[in-house]
């Protein structure tokens, strides 16, 4: 097993475990569609990492002559991971702000007490 395969496997395993754990505990934000999407994306990463020859088929299909470089694959993986994480954080902060504003609005209104 090569180093980049280990990295991809570890990251994918963490993401998959997180998703499945949320589904098991019936986390309100985790729908069936989300977990299916997560499975497709991260299982796809593992498959490509361990069977890079499959990318030849893709490369041939899109018209590229060579194989996809492992470094580029990992680079994309990290970038997606960072963007995914950042957007999740931003979304959580946005939701928190909304909840604060809503509570503030209802608290300041005497007619709803």
């Amino acid at each position: 097993m090569k180093f980049y395969q280990i990295i991809v496997l570890v990251i994918s395993a963490v993401m998959l475990t997180q998703g499945i754990a949320r589904l098991v505990v019936n986390f309100s934000s985790q729908s069936f569609l989300k977990i299916v999407t997560r499975l497709i994306v991260w299982c796809g990463m593992i498959v490509i990492a361990f069977f890079p020859a499959l990318t030849d088929v893709i490369a041939h299909f899109v018209g590229l002559e060579g194989n996809i470089n492992a470094v580029i694959l990992i680079g994309f993986l990290l970038i997606f991971l960072i963007i995914f994480r950042l957007m999740s954080i931003i979304e959580r902060i946005e939701k928190d702000i909304t909840i604060l504003v809503q509570k503030d609005t209802l608290r300041n209104d005497n007619s709803t007490k």
Binding site: V101, D104, T105, L106, D109
Partner: peptide, 10 residues
């Protein structure tokens, strides 16, 4: 009955 969001939240 009028309530107000201090900032726009959508």
């Amino acid at each position: 009955m009028a309530l107000r969001h201090r900032i726009n939240r959508g």
